[in-house]
């Protein structure tokens, strides 16, 4: 040990000698410099965040035709004969179903009926979702049945991408994909949020596919082990206005040993 004639004792006044003071000053400056360099490096070298939005603090009221094919959605007319299909979600990591139960019991079949919902909008890259936080804010506007969007079968396809939970991916979290977010996405899908396959092509154009089983029924628990990993999925692709659907058999998902390339 390097000997120091000075001997500091905290309870003895003036025991902090000049050599010790100099060492302490140097150490403090180096420690603060480390703090500054660390802050600059860790903050500057973050990957860019996408411009997705979650309107946590403001509520929006939307009105449209309710349907489940198989996940709860609201078909909203945004311009004359132009419709947007808004995916309905519950609070936290849960499905919208518990918030719709009360109204569904009252009217028996809510499909095709005009419903207004007040909730928090989530949107990114042309897709819109809404978080419902209170079943009192789901109101039946009209009992007359309206036309539902048609599904159009495209073809059997093999797609490469990542299974995400749309709530986080389209706005609640940044990043809402990949390994860091995987556990959260697993909880969201396990809680009833529909799994979505996100793909990005060479031109950086992304497409999103709601995932169902081959019978068009919801998949949640069975798909958990594949969430948040680059995967290759084969299934029958259908188009339903502004959303795509892929019907799959979970055993047909193939994990890919590569980095995630979706955005």
């Amino acid at each position: 040990m390097k000997k120091n004639d000075e001997f500091y004792v905290s309870y003895i006044d003036r025991s902090l000698g000049p050599k010790t003071k100099t060492t302490l000053k140097r150490f403090s400056i180096i420690a603060l410099a480390t703090i500054v360099i660390g802050a600059l490096l860790f903050s500057f070298f973050q990957k860019p965040f996408k411009n997705s939005t979650f309107e946590l603090t403001s509520a929006t009221n939307i009105t449209g035709t309710y349907y489940e094919k198989p996940y709860p959605m609201l078909r909203v007319e945004v311009a004359e004969n132009t419709f947007k299909n808004i995916l309905l979600l519950g609070f936290g990591k849960s499905s919208a179903n518990p918030y719709l139960e009360k109204l569904q019991k009252e009217v028996k079949d809510l499909n095709g009926k005009n419903v207004s919902i007040e909730g928090n909008l989530i949107y990114y890259n042309g897709k819109t979702l809404i978080q419902i936080t209170d079943d009192e804010k789901v109101i039946l506007e009209s009992s007359s049945k309206k036309r539902l969007p048609e599904k159009e079968v495209i073809s059997k396809m093999t797609l490469t991408g990542e299974i995400i939970d749309p709530k986080c991916y389209f706005g609640v979290m940044k990043p809402g994909k990949g390994k860091i977010h995987r556990s959260c996405a697993v909880r969201c899908v396990s809680g009833g949020i529909p799994p979505v396959l996100a793909t990005t092509d060479k031109n950086n154009i992304s497409e999103y596919f709601l995932i169902t089983d081959l019978n068009g029924k919801p998949i949640n628990k069975d798909i958990l082990e594949y969430i948040g990993k680059p995967s290759e999925i084969t299934g029958i692709v259908e188009k339903m206005e502004d959303w795509s659907i892929i019907k799959i058999q979970v055993s047909d998902i193939r994990e890919l040993d590569k980095k995630s390339s979706i955005y």
């Binding site: 603060l32 703090i35 500054v36 660390g38 802050a39 600059l40 860790f42 903050s43 500057f44 973050q46 860019p48 965040f49 996408k50 411009n51 997705s52 940044k174």
Partner: peptide
């Protein structure tokens, strides 16, 4: 110092 620097640099260069 760390928290303020981190927040400012993030909000300036990665505001989303």
């Amino acid at each position: 110092l760390y928290i303020i620097l981190f927040a400012v640099v993030t909000l300036v260069f990665n505001s989303e």
